[in-house]
Design a protein around this nucleic acid. Structure first.
Lengths: 117, 117
DNA sequence: CTTGTATACATAGTTTTTCTATGTATATTT
DNA sequence: AAATATACATAGAAAAACTATGTATACAAG
């Protein structure tokens, strides 16, 4: 199956955790596979989160107390739902805010009019 | 000396090379220290590029043929000026474009209205 | 006059993040 | 029956930026 090339992987660095947290904030509880698919669809298949990136990131968020889990059986298949803790809700706001501030700063630097500097 | 805290270092990942290239595109030739100071000022001291990040990045860009150098003595002090090669000019446009597309995608994902998904 | 700060380059080794590759297993479609 | 999709997980590699350190000159403060 053909997939449009993803953005330079490097760009995702530092933003994956923020993406996960924000999706959990807007969707309530989600399971891992669901997160990969949601990101794939919302990004027009341009951001493809790999399982080798997602699960370690989720485990880390749990260790840090930002998300909690509940396991559910669907048929014979396990599903592990992730949702924000109270602390995770606070952290999400901070991280999203920081990311947008960073983007604003980036725009200043990248759109420099040399006559003004 | 007190400095406002920098953005989460992770956010810079993947954007440093684009920042360097874009600054060279708008300013012609620049030397390393000048780049760190320009970024510091343009970002309101929120992005502080470390020498341990900058010089390896510049050397890599040179290895890849995206920038070229000329050394100049200012008093007794060496100054190594970096400027874009032709290929570097093309690459700069691509990278800046990719970064802004990534930012647009990121906004879609982070601003999701759950009612619409 | 000497101490600290600024300018200016460079690199070794560490940390962090994401990736590739692999493994297990069930469900559904062809 | 085979291929694809669903669903979790982890080990080890790769990439990027960091910390820490080193060299050296210039200038300001005390």
């Amino acid at each position: 199956m053909y997939l449009k090339p993803m953005y330079s992987k490097e760009l995702l660095k530092g933003t994956l955790t923020t993406i996960i947290l924000r999706l959990l904030a807007t969707h309530g509880k989600m399971y891992g596979y669901e997160i990969t698919q949601k990101v794939k669809i919302l990004s027009g298949e341009k951001i493809l989160i790999k399982e080798g990136s997602l699960y370690p990131a989720l485990h880390k968020l749990k260790d840090e107390g930002l998300v909690k889990t509940e396991t559910e059986m669907v048929g014979n298949r396990m599903r592990k739902y992730y949702s924000l803790t109270e602390q995770g809700g606070v952290s999400t706001k901070e991280k999203v805010d920081e990311l947008f501030q960073f983007i604003d700063t980036l725009k200043v630097i990248l759109n420099v009019n040399p006559k003004l500097t």
